[in-house]
Amino acid sequence: MAFRSDTLVEESRAAALPRKGAMRRIFDRNIHAYVFLLPWLIGFFGLTLGPALASLYLSFTNYDLLQSPDWVGAANYVRIATADPKFAASMKVTFLYVLLSVPLKLAFALLIAMAFNRGIKGLTLYRAIFYLPSLLGSSVAIAVLWRQLFASDGLVNMALWQLFGYEGPSWISNPNYSLYTLVILSIWQFGSPMIIFLAGLRQIPADMYEAAEIDGASKQRQFFRITLPLLTPVIFFNAVIQTIEAFKAFTPAFIISEGTGGPINSTLFYTLYLYQEAFGFFRMGYASALAWVLVVIISLFTAFSFLSARYWVHYDD
């Protein structure tokens, strides 16, 4: 007896309850499905949609948790756009961080993945070693370690002194360098995009390279004409994911600057600023407006990525 596969559940109900009407069957199968879906539905309305709408409302108010929200119209947004030097500073820091860390991280990831691609002994071990920092990197422990590495008497300066006789500054307490220590921390975690690149490289059919080889194409040419174009969907994917993550970075900046975003706002990531406004000063309305500005920025960025994709991402079909 053949069932059409996608109507599995309701047909069986029909077989089991032949006398009940069609409406009853539909009702039954809906009930079952919605029982499964119930936890998610509660979460969706109670913890996602409801709060998102509430924060949209709060962003037009002043609210300090004690007195009820005070409607101020677009004042919060106006202040963000025109009269908030800390907002401007945090945007500058965040964009600099995104623009530096994402391309460098992806370049590293691709470079190492390429080195592995041609089949190499010990791949599993190398890959594990390079992946480990990705797994550990967002923890407080690694941020603590970074504070030591880039302190004035930390490992980096010790090594610089021993190798080159150069006396380095305190990298984390110098506003000219502090952000770059965080960029290095991000690049250090190139392991997970590397794994995604490796999986992508495996999808490229080997006979393409063989054909190119027969036609006498150089390795360089093979890279630019075969590998890179066929890898663009993976590059695109990695770039979007890593950029969104970079916009949301929080923990390392918080630990390294002890929650201040200093020195002189040089590590004031956007999320850190938002946290300070909400849970340091309890300006919940203003912080909600900041959150919505972040959504708009991330959405604009994502939309732009997808629009640009049609010009540089190569799809088979």
């Binding site: 709060p51 509430a54 909400a278 919940m284 912080a287």
Partner: peptide
């Protein structure tokens, strides 16, 4: 459900905290 994948948690953070 797919839409919520893209939503940064900062947007729900404050009302969730109040809740």
């Amino acid at each position: 459900m797919l839409g919520t994948l893209m939503l940064p948690y900062h947007v729900v953070l404050i009302p969730q905290y109040i809740l």
